[in-house]
Write a protein that binds this DNA or RNA. Structure first.
Length: 554
RNA sequence: AGCCCAUUGGUCAAGAGGUUAAGACGCCACCCUCUCACGGUGGAAUCAGGGGUUCGAGUCCCCUAUGGGUUACCA
């Protein structure tokens, strides 16, 4: 059969050649060792932690090698396309510090290797498809879904690998006339790879993350171009990565099993494949089992979740970096103030087994990260967050913003700084007592303090209160009240002789703390009262006293 | 079911034939302490199982088990 005629018949509108495209997209002029990476999300309206995890690898690899990072939109599945996805993807990633040098941006496309949406690259794919037909590496297939389904069924009955391969690939033998007739009859067709893998030996290649991996040659006549003329992922990414001069393909391990297809397509086109880098999945614990994070079942997989909870992007980055390269933690201990960007991330140090995403660890990491962020920035972030997610309290928070700044700062500059702040929602709850809106007494009196005792403590404290007292004078008064009423001044005394005392000075100050914050625990109380101001602080104590008295009567 | 990948404490993991098998999170105890947080000290807890190879195996080989992935005109 005349392959040239077949190719012309299938692709009548393609007149250019692959060489033209080679010229249009010349080799990049980059420093030795520079990596070109790409993120290729599908615009399905959902961006998740796994995307970010993987994007982070692309980003670090490109940045640390003075290379290029590209955003390519893989929109070959028209059915799943969702409006607005591109913007969501770009904004979400940018929020976490992932910015692209090239490709689709909010301001349009940027770069010399475009277009960067696969749906706009049909001519390139068709040129490559035509080339494969000419060289006997691809052929048209007219089989309907029903026919393929029936074939599958027979294969399954015979316990044979299902799919179009070997002798089951009957359409390899179609004559030029038969093809012409089918075309004339208006039958839909797809372009299939004419695999040559049957009977070949397996071999090994080096994965950028996993090292040597075994490859069993592909034998499937995989679909390259779908009936709508758009390519499948298997074909599109090979063509794009080649012409965009990508050096490292970072993708999830779910692609490991189709890697042989991709390698054969490279071979068919006579191209050298880039380095494949297969990341492991992020897992989650579910009923005692680890499993892949699923976007349907796990809300915490969505980046939107982290946004709603108000996690700081720096904290997420820090934690992801620990997951990526575990020696990062050690590095961080040695370089507490160095930006994460200076760490020499290495793909080959990534784990090839999936990691469980651990919220507790994230929180621990976040505490340290927030210590490195200024109070002003934290406050600004918190206020932004409140505008969106806590609108009922946002106005008061803005009004009291300078006070909140001081509240957030309590104990932060000590040699052993407090680590109270984790993420915006938690911080909001943490400082909520300071706001008048919704303020109430949340916790009960200490066990060792009766209501009458508490009333007495409050009356005495209010009687002797002087807002000008410094921290030690302030506390000396509390100690005096404690001693007068028979509470131990030293914790040890009480522990040794519990019967000798009503309780400890901690119980006494707890009563004041409850009045001021409504809670049994808080940062330094004197500081809080100073920030709150005399009028508000005393008002709260008086209100608390009054409520205790009215309860007593009742 | 076939094929592929993975398997060190509850979790993240270091470890490249000889280690008392690091470190971190979490947990427990104690200390510090007006609460909480921070910090400090100590503790419990791991090489999935079974066979080999070797003087010696978490490290190499084989089998089994478990988990995950994949078997689309989705990516």
């Amino acid at each position: 059969m005349d392959l040239q005629q077949l190719a012309d018949l299938l692709f009548p509108s393609i007149s250019g050649t692959l060489e033209d495209w080679e010229e249009a997209y010349p080799k990049r002029k980059l420093p030795e060792g520079a990596s070109v990476t790409r993120l290729g999300p599908s615009p399905t309206g959902f961006i998740h932690l796994g995307n970010l995890y993987s994007a982070f690898v692309d980003e670090r690899q490109a940045r640390l090698s003075d290379g290029v990072m590209i955003l390519r939109i893989e929109d070959t599945d028209q059915k799943r396309k969702v409006e607005g996805s591109e913007e969501l993807i770009i904004r979400s990633l940018s929020h976490y510090g992932i910015n692209f040098d090239e490709g689709v941006t909010l301001e349009g496309e940027k770069g010399d290797y475009g277009p960067y949406r696969q749906s706009e690259r049909k001519e390139i794919y068709h040129t490559a498809g035509k080339k494969l037909v000419e060289s006997g590496w691809a052929y048209p297939s007219f089989m309907s879904e029903e026919e393929i389904g029936a074939l599958r069924k027979r294969q399954e009955e015979q316990k044979i690998l299902p799919g179009i391969h070997g002798k089951w690939a009957s359409e390899r033998e179609l004559t030029l006339e038969e093809v012409r007739e089918n075309l004339l009859a208006g039958k839909e067709w797809v372009l299939r790879l004419k695999s040559r893998g049957e009977g070949r030996e397996s071999y090994s290649i080096c994965d950028g993350i996993r090292g040597d991996i075994r490859v069993h040659p592909n034998i499937m006549d995989t679909v390259l171009l779908k009936a709508d003329g758009l390519p499948t992922y298997h074909f599109a990414h090979v063509v794009d990565d080649h012409f965009m001069r990508i050096t490292h393909i970072v993708r999830g391990e779910e692609w490991l099993s189709t890697l042989p297809i991709h390698l054969e397509v490279h071979e068919a086109l006579g191209w050298e494949p880039p380095v494949f880098c297969h990341t492991s999945h992020l897992l989650k614990m579910d009923g005692g089992n680890k499993r892949k994070l699923s976007k349907r079942r796990d809300p915490e997989l969505s980046l939107e979740y982290y946004h709603q909870e108000g996690y700081f992007p720096e904290a997420i980055r820090e934690y992801l970096m620990i997951l990526l390269n575990s020696d990062y933690e050690e590095w961080r201990r040695d370089h507490p103030d160095t930006p994460l960007e200076d760490f020499s991330f290495r793909m080959e140090d990534m784990s090839s087994s999936g990691a469980l995403f651990d919220m507790e660890k994230l929180h621990d990491v976040s505490k340290d990260v927030l210590l490195r962020i200024s109070e002003e920035e934290i406050l600004a972030y918190l206020l932004d967050w409140a505008d969106r997610y806590a609108p009922e309290c946002a106005p008061e928070m803005h009004e009291r913003s300078s006070e909140l700044l001081r509240i957030l700062s309590i104990g932060r500059d000590a040699k052993k700084p407090r680590k109270d702040l984790i993420y915006a929602r938690q911080i909001y709850q943490f400082i909520h007592y300071y706001l008048d809106g919704g303020f109430h007494i949340e916790d009960p009196l200490p066990e060792r303090v009766s209501r009458e005792e508490a009333i007495g403590i409050l009356e005495e404290f209010l009687a002797g209160y002087d807002h000008e007292d410094d921290n030690s004078a302030w506390f000396a008064k509390i100690r005096a009240i404690a001693q007068d009423r028979g509470f131990a001044l030293r914790m040890g005394d009480f522990r040794r002789e519990p019967d000798k005392y009503k309780g400890t000075v901690a119980d006494v100050s707890s009563v004041i703390r409850l009045g001021i914050t409504g809670r049994a625990s808080s940062p330094d109380l004197w500081n809080i009262m100073q920030i709150m101001g005399e009028e508000r602080a005393l008002k709260r104590l008086e209100d608390y006293l009054a409520s205790l008295q009215s309860e007593s009567i009742a």
